[in-house]
Design a protein around this nucleic acid. Structure first.
Lengths: 355, 355
DNA sequence: CGGACTGGTGAGAGCGCTTCCACTCTCGTG
DNA sequence: CACGAGAGTGGAAGCGCTCTCACCAGTCCG
C-alpha cells in the first residue's frame, strides 16, 4: 500500500524503488521523472508537436538520465507499424553470397531506407523448405513492407504479397500478380537481343546460349531476346542449356553445350558468373575466345573485367534499380502511392575482349 | 448497443460484422467462432496444455477458417520474447558478401535456430556509421539474442551485450568482457604457429606475414602465432603488413611486402582470400610459388583449392563453430546456461602445393 | 467585455495478446 | 457419502505504448 501510493505520486524527479528494480525504464518512469504526464512524454519523444519548450527539455533530460528506449512491441501494437522492412531473397544462401548483385542491392536498399530509420531485415529463403516460413512471416506482419529480389515462379510471393496488400517492390518482373504489385526491372529481352545481334554482326552463325533458370523471369526474358535476334537473322536457335547463375553451373553448362554442339562459334550467356565458368570450360576444351567462340556475359558487376579474356557484357544499372525499388516501397509506406508502379531500365552493351 | 451485445454473445460459429470488416482476425474472433474464451483459445494455440480435445479441435478449425495468425507485437509485449535473434556482422557489406565464411556461418546458424522456430535477422553494420544504430537496436530488445561475427575492437558490442545481459555468442574471441559473454573460436595462435613451422621446416629463413586487421582478435592472434614460431627458430619477425581480409587487400599487401623485403622466401597469410591476392602479386613480380616463395593461407573455404598453385592452408571447422555458437545461444535463451561458456576448436593443416 | 481560438496538457481508452486466479466439474478414495 | 485432487475453463488484469478528447489557461478580435 505504501509502495503503491508512493508510486503514483507525481513528484517531479521522484523515482520510486520500483523504477530502480525494473529492468528497462518505461515511459511512465520518464514521465514521472520529468514531472509530466505519460501523454506529454510520448509527444515529446515522438517529435514534439504541441509540447512546451520546458516540458520538452524535462523529458529529454529524463530520457537521457534513465537511458530510456521505447519498447518496440508496445509501440507497434498501437501504431501498427514495425519500422522494419524485409529484403527477401528466395535463393539458397550459397548463391546469395557469391553473386555481387545481392551485395550491391542490399547495400543500396539499406542506405535508402535507413534515411527514414527503417531497419532492413534480410530473409534468405531456401526455395522449397522455407516457402511456408516466409509466407507466415509476412502474414504475421512482422515487417511493414518487403522488397523481393530474385523471385521464382512457384514461390508464391507475389500472390501472397498482393492479397495481403503488403507494401512491396519486386526487383525483376514477378510471374503473377504483375499488375498488382510494384516492380523494377531492366529490359532483359532487349539486352539479350543486343548481345546476340553483336555476335551476329561479328560474323557468328552458330550461336548457343547458356540461359538462366527457367522459373525466373530474368531467365526467360534473356532467352527470348536471344531467340528473337536469331529468328530475325534466320539462324538456328536450338543450342540452349539452362543453368543456375553460378560459376560452377556455368562450367558444367559450357562443357555440355560444347559437347552437344561442337560447331558453336558464339555463346550468349545469361550472367557474368556463368560466363566466367563457361570461359573456363571453353579454355579446357581448347577453344580460343573470341577467335573460335565469341562469348557475351550479362550484368557487368566486377567479375566481367577479371575473366580471361575480359567479358563483353550488358550493364544493368543495379544501383539505380535498387534505389528505385527502395523508393517505390517508401512511396507505399507513406501512403502516397496510388497504384502499383513499374520502372524499367535499359541495359547498355559494354564491349571488352570476349566478343 | 445491438452490435455490442451481439458481439459478446458466445454463439459458436457466430461471426459479427466487425470480424468481417476488420483486417486480420484477432484471437477474440477465433475464440468466438470456436465457442470458447480467449484464454482457452490462447492455450490451444500455444501448444494446448490443459485444453480438452473438443476445445482444441474447435480452435484449430476456427484458426484455419479465419486464416488467423497471432499478432507478434501483442505477443511480444506480454511474453517479452520476440522469437528472433540477430546475426550481427560489423563489416562493410562488400566483405560480407565476398567472404564464404559468412555464408557458411549464416547458413548453419539459420538451420540450427530454425529448429526452434527462431527467425534469424541479419544485421550488417558498417563499422563506424552504424555503430550507434546497432547498439540502439539491441537496446530496444527487438531480438531475444545475438550472435556476433567478426567483432572489432571499438565496436562496443561485447560491452553493450554484457551490460544489457542480452543472450549472445561471439564467434571469435571478443576484446573486452571476454569472461562475461559466451564465445567460440579456434586457436588462431596455434594455427598460425603451425603454418610458420611448416615453412621453417621446409627451409624458409626469411618469412613475412600478411596479417589481418589489428583491431580484430583473429588478426592479432594469427600474428602472435607467426611471431612465436619465428622466435623459437630465432628468425627475424620484422616483415609484417596488415591488410583487411579481402583479395584486393591481399594483392596490395603482397606487392608492398615484396617491395619492402625482396628477399622473402616464405609468406604466412592470415586468410585464403588475402593469400589468393598475394599469389597474384607474387606472380606479377615474377616469383614462383613455392620455389621462390612458399605461401600459406588460412581458413580453407573453397578458394584455397582454386588458386594457382592451390594453397596450403589451415582448416577452421567453421561449420562446427557456427553450430556451437548457435547452441550456446539456445542454452542461454532456454535459461539452462548458468555461466558464460567458451568453446575453442583446433585448426588443422591442409597441405597443397603452395608450401 | 464576451466569445472564439489556440497552444499545452493529462485522463483514460484501448492495441491483441498471455497468464494468474478463481471457479466448476468430474472422479477416485477413505 | 463427504472430500480432496486435478482437469478444464473463463474473467480479468495487465504488458508499454499512442492518441483521442476534454479541459484549462491565455490571447485576440469585434
Amino acid at each position: 500500500m505504501v509502495c503503491r501510493s508512493r508510486r503514483h505520486q507525481p513528484t517531479a524527479g521522484g523515482l520510486t524503488i520500483d523504477d530502480v528494480i525494473k529492468g528497462s525504464p518505461t515511459l511512465e518512469a520518464v514521465a514521472r521523472l520529468a514531472g509530466v504526464s505519460r501523454a506529454t512524454a510520448s509527444r515529446a519523444i515522438n517529435g514534439g508537436s504541441r509540447v512546451s519548450a520546458r516540458a520538452q527539455q524535462a523529458v529529454n533530460d529524463a530520457v537521457r538520465q534513465l537511458g530510456y528506449t521505447p519498447n518496440s512491441a508496445a509501440r507497434s501494437l498501437v501504431t501498427r507499424r514495425t519500422d522494419s522492412v524485409a529484403l527477401i531473397v528466395p535463393e539458397p544462401d550459397e548463391r546469395v553470397f557469391s553473386d555481387p548483385f545481392f551485395a550491391r542491392t542490399l547495400h543500396v536498399v539499406t542506405n535508402v531506407l535507413s534515411e527514414r530509420d527503417l531497419q532492413v531485415v534480410l530473409l534468405i529463403a531456401r526455395p522449397n523448405d522455407d516457402k511456408q516460413r516466409i509466407l507466415r512471416y509476412l502474414h504475421r506482419r512482422t515487417v511493414d513492407g518487403a522488397i523481393v529480389v530474385s523471385h521464382h515462379r512457384d514461390d508464391g510471393l507475389s500472390d501472397e504479397v498482393a492479397t495481403l496488400k503488403l507494401p512491396s517492390t519486386f526487383v525483376g518482373r514477378p510471374w503473377t500478380s504483375a499488375d498488382q504489385v510494384s516492380w523494377v526491372s531492366t529490359d532483359n529481352i532487349d539486352g539479350s537481343h543486343k548481345a546476340t545481334r553483336l555476335l551476329i554482326e561479328r560474323g557468328c552463325r552458330r550461336i548457343g546460349t547458356i540461359a538462366g533458370p527457367a522459373d525466373m523471369t530474368v531467365g526467360q526474358d534473356r532467352l527470348v531476346g536471344w531467340r528473337r535476334a536469331l529468328a530475325e537473322a534466320e539462324l538456328p536457335d536450338d543450342a540452349v542449356v539452362h543453368s543456375d547463375f553460378t560459376e560452377a553451373g556455368g562450367i558444367e553448362a559450357g562443357r555440355s553445350i560444347m559437347r552437344a554442339h561442337p560447331d558453336l562459334d558464339g555463346l550468349v550467356v545469361a550472367s557474368d558468373l556463368m560466363a566466367a565458368g563457361a570461359l573456363r570450360a571453353l579454355a579446357a576444351a581448347g577453344k580460343r575466345v573470341p577467335d573460335d567462340v565469341a562469348v557475351t556475359g550479362y550484368d557487368d558487376l566486377g567479375i566481367s573485367e577479371h575473366t580471361d579474356p575480359p567479358l563483353t557484357t550488358l550493364r544493368n544499372p543495379i544501383t539505380e534499380m535498387a534505389d528505385q525499388a527502395a523508393r517505390l516501397l517508401l512511396e507505399q509506406l507513406d501512403g502516397s502511392a496510388t497504384a502499383p508502379r513499374r520502372v524499367i531500365f535499359t541495359p547498355t552493351l559494354v564491349r571488352r575482349l570476349s566478343a
